[in-house]
Structure formats: C-alpha cells, structure tokens
Design a protein around this nucleic acid. Structure first.
Lengths: 164, 164
DNA sequence: CCAGATTTCTTTAAGTTTCAAGCAATGGCG
DNA sequence: CGCCATTGCTTGAAACTTAAAGAAATCTGG
C-alpha cells in the first residue's frame, strides 16, 4: 500500500491554474497584436499577413529557399505554402523554379518588384511594432526575450517528449 | 532651425530591432504551443482548437452568452462565430435559442453532453499546458504574467490611438 | 409615431489552414 | 540493376477566418 499512496500523491490534483492563465494571456497578447498588424497591413498596403510573413522569410535569404524550408520556418503545413506561393507568383512577387539537382525541389525567391515592395512594408511594419511595444522599457524587453526563450525551449521539450 | 534639428532628432532612424525580435519570439512561442495543443486535441479527442476555445468560453457562463459576446471574447469576427456555432449545434454540443427580449440576439449554451465532454477535455488540457510550461519556475510564471499584462496594455493603447 | 442610426446576426467571396492521400524524384541497399 | 523507403511537393476535402455587404430588430430624436 505504500506504493499506492505514493502514486496517489503524485496524481493529486495539483495547482496548474497559473500556467493555464499564463497561456491564455500569452495567446491574448499575440492575437491582439496579430490582429493589429493584420489590419494595418490591409489598410496600408492591401496585403494579407501570411503573404507578408512569407515575403519576410524570403527577404532574409536572397538566393531563395525551398518550399519545405519555408514551411518549417513558418511552422505551417506544406500544402499551405503551396497555395500561398501560387498566389504570390501569380501576383509577380515571387519567382519560382525547379532545382536542377533535384527535380522535386522548388526554389522560390523574391522578384525585384517583390523585394522592393516588401522592404517598403517592412520599414513601416517595424515602426508599428515599436509603437505596439512602446510601453515596455529596454529592461522589460530583455526580460521578456529571456523568459520567452525559456518558454520556447520548455514547449519544444514537451512536444519532443510526446513524439513531435 | 532649432525646431528643425529637434524634429530631426525625433525622426532619426531609431533602434527598433529589439522590439521586432521580441514580437517574432512571442509569435513563435504562441504558434509552437498552439500547434502542440491543436494536435493533442485532435489526437486525443478529435476536436479542433476553435471548437474547444468556444466551448471554454461557454463553460464559464452556464446561463449562456450571445454570439457577440463570444465574438468579442474570442477576438474573432461575427461571421466566424456564426459558422462555428452552427457546427457545434449540429453536433449536439451547443444549445441555441433566440432571446425573448431582443429577437436579434441568439443565446448559446453548452448542452449537458457538451459540458460533460468539455470538462473531460479541459482537465487533460490543463495538464498539457502545465507540462508545456514545465521548465518555468513559479517566479518565471509570475514575471511573464506581469510583463505580458504590460504588453497587452501597451498594444491596446497603440490600437486605440489608431482608431481601434 | 416614425425615419434614420445602431446593433445583432447571417451571408458571401476570397483566402488561409490543416490533414490525409497521392505522385514524382531521390537515395540506399541487396 | 531494381525494390522500397524517404523526401518534396501537390491535391482535395473540410474547416476556419476575415472583410464587407445585407437583413432584421431595436433604439432614438424629433
């Protein structure tokens, strides 16, 4: 019966409300900011957030990336990227070609026009973000960075433990 | 020219990269956790995250809420809620009736079955969240709560300044 | 009372998103 | 070489999401 009581001790209803509240607050913050950025992007540049995000990924890598790379970086499904890229190629923002060393692979890059347009948007976007986080002191920012890094690591560990 | 130089001083290209990096990290964290929760909900209960979230809102208010209330709380559009509710009524989780004092208003509540199913899911959900945030100390949690509250206030202020 | 404004919800179109299934190309191994 | 597992991407179905326009009920100021 010792084992039994020990087992019970571990399974006793613990106090997890704080973590739950933290998660809800994290989600609220992100949703709030995301909505704000989304509506500014639409209003100001008539562009959607996913399009902007995709272009942001590509802007960092002039030589281009494969669809899989994009999909991993954006943490969205492959099929999602296929559709997004389709529309961005259609609108002339992206350039897409099949890799010559591996014909399964599609390499996409920003076109000249796409890059120019993105840079313009990105410059304003950065100001919006600075404004949105405007009440935080540099110390707050550092501290949040640190705690979110820790959170990310913790979440990744938990995901990995379950089997990715 | 004093005014000019003062103006310039304000408009000098400032250092906003930190805020941008913070926003990206915040977004990464949330996306990561959201994806994890989403896939556990599907795997374990074959339910989508939006359905779960909607039921979570309703669980807190046994007498029910209007669609507008839900839409505000979840920070999603009205049309979105209309569709979600439709499917959840269809599946027997929700009960919907027209208010008698205002015939524009639809009041929705969890059905008995819906509530029972939600409670079961919520119990496990809370454990997942605790696990996902498992590396954070109680102090980390408190500090994150505080900083995210500040962030939320700042973001709301910025949104309001633009005109909601 | 009643005309216009507002609120609540639905509808529509376009786009985003996931998951699962499928296809094509590659790479490894016997 | 030839099988077959893997990888990269696309497709298809269902769901989710938004913005915008519309319909119905209510409220408000004259």
């Amino acid at each position: 019966m010792t084992l039994d009581s020990e087992t019970k001790a571990v399974e006793l209803p613990e106090h997890h409300g704080d973590e739950l509240r933290l998660w809800l607050r994290l989600l609220t913050c992100t949703t709030l900011i995301e909505g704000e950025v989304r509506s500014r992007l639409r209003e100001r540049f008539d562009v959607t957030l996913p399009r902007f995000d995709l272009m942001a990924q590509l802007d960092k890598v002039p030589e281009g990336m494969t669809l899989s790379d994009v999909s991993k970086r954006m943490m969205v499904s492959n099929g999602n990227v296929t559709g997004l890229v389709e529309r961005l190629v259609e609108s002339g923002h992206l350039d897409r070609r099949t890799s010559e060393v591996d014909r399964r692979v599609q390499v996409i890059r920003l076109t000249k026009a796409g890059r120019a347009e993105f840079r313009k948007m990105a410059a304003e976007h950065e100001l919006w973000i600075a404004d949105i986080f405007g009440d935080l002191t540099p110390k707050d920012v550092r501290e949040l960075m640190r705690l979110l890094a820790k959170t990310k690591t913790s979440a990744q560990k938990s995901a990995r433990a379950r089997g990715d």
